[in-house]
Simulated scan of single mutants.
Amino acid sequence: MKSSISSVLAIVLGLGLASGNSAWAQPTAAPGEAGEAYQGMPAIAPMGVRVDRYLPVPNSAAVPPVDPAKGYRLQELGHGLYMVTDNAYQSMFMVYDKGVVVMDAPPSYSAHLKQAIAEVTDRPITHLIYSHAHIDHIGGAADLGGHPIIVAQEETKRLLERSNDPKRPVPTVTFKDRYTLKVGSQVLELSYHGNAHEPGNIFIWAPAQKVLMVVDIVFPGWMAWSGFADAQDIPGYFNQVAEIDKIPFETLVSGHVDRVGTHADVREQLEFMNDVKSATRTALQTTPPYVGMADADKTNPWAVADNYIDRVVVKCVDAVTPKWQSRLAAYDVFIWSQCFAMQQSLRID
């Protein structure tokens, strides 16, 4: 039975199980109860385990604080372009001779966006660009008031029509691959590079300022959000990080977290991602099935897969932690989910 279950799992789930019979230990707890931890568990607490304190954020990620009375921080990016941030979310606005173009409206500070703009100009908001459809980045669009022209990729319009959310008005102008917005002397070039984080997530390029805005792909100085930022297409996500590095930007606005980014940040994230991929591939190839399982559970293919996957993830976390835990802020928060997402992708993508 052990051999047939292995074959089924290898075919259906693409586990790449190691051959041969593995030694296994009797469980130390009754069915349904927690037993001993997997062998070689890292010191970093896994998901679902409460910690007294997370790892400290490295000094390299330190930035100017947000004035609590304002609820945001304003940073000039040059030639009428500004970033607004609460040191967790980021958006931009561009001033031109007759008005203002806003790029994203995160609800965490959208009530203050008009105040931020008023620090620079009294011109009206004429355009709003959606980076993508997710509510945490554009859920404050209705707070801007007025009736701006809303520009987005056509997939974003499709998703927002499905959501039917009054906080996220449906775009009035859409495009498939590329769109150039010219307002006065200012130019923004919008482009779609396929699904990675989610369909419709675009690149926003300000050529005069050499500023690139791509949201939920790169996280300068920080661990990416859970599961490679909830990427719907992880191979596509890897491709887009590499693609971002090819654009001749001087400043990257990534939608998160507390500072702008550089090419060095992009390359560091890609190096980390490739380390996770390499460690996971090795773990998938060298982890035997059934270790630590009771005989009665070995005929349960879901249980065998769960046991195998858990131990693959443990090996991945163990492999990459010594190099990365002191380099990326909040490394310990999401490293388990990155390794889990990577093994899912390598097995089925």
Score class of each variant (00 low, 15 high):
H197F: 13
Q285W: 03
P248V: 12
Q209M: 10
S191R: 11
A279S: 12
K210L: 12
Y179R: 13
D233K: 07
M213R: 10
D230M: 14
T287Q: 15
L252M: 09
E250V: 08
A231Q: 05
T180W: 03
M213S: 13
L181N: 10
F228C: 11
T280L: 08
I244N: 01
R178I: 04
L284Q: 02
T287N: 08
T280S: 14
V291K: 06
L284V: 01
E268G: 14
V276L: 10
F228A: 07
S185T: 11
N195R: 12
N201Q: 12
Y290D: 10
A208T: 09
V291L: 11
Q232R: 00
I204E: 10
R259P: 00
T262K: 11
D233W: 03
D258N: 15
E271H: 13
V253N: 03
L190V: 00
V183P: 09
T251N: 10
V266Q: 02
Q285T: 02
D258S: 15
V241I: 15
E189P: 05
E271C: 11
F249L: 07
N239I: 01
T287V: 06
V211D: 06
D233G: 10
P199V: 03
D230P: 04
S254E: 02
D233I: 04
T280H: 01
P248T: 11
V266D: 04
K246Q: 13
V214L: 05
L212N: 02
V211P: 08
I202T: 01
E198S: 10
F272M: 11
L188W: 00
A242Y: 00
K210Q: 15
V253F: 05
G261T: 05
T286C: 10
V187A: 06
I244M: 11
I204L: 11
W225Y: 08
Q285E: 15
D258V: 09
V211Y: 03
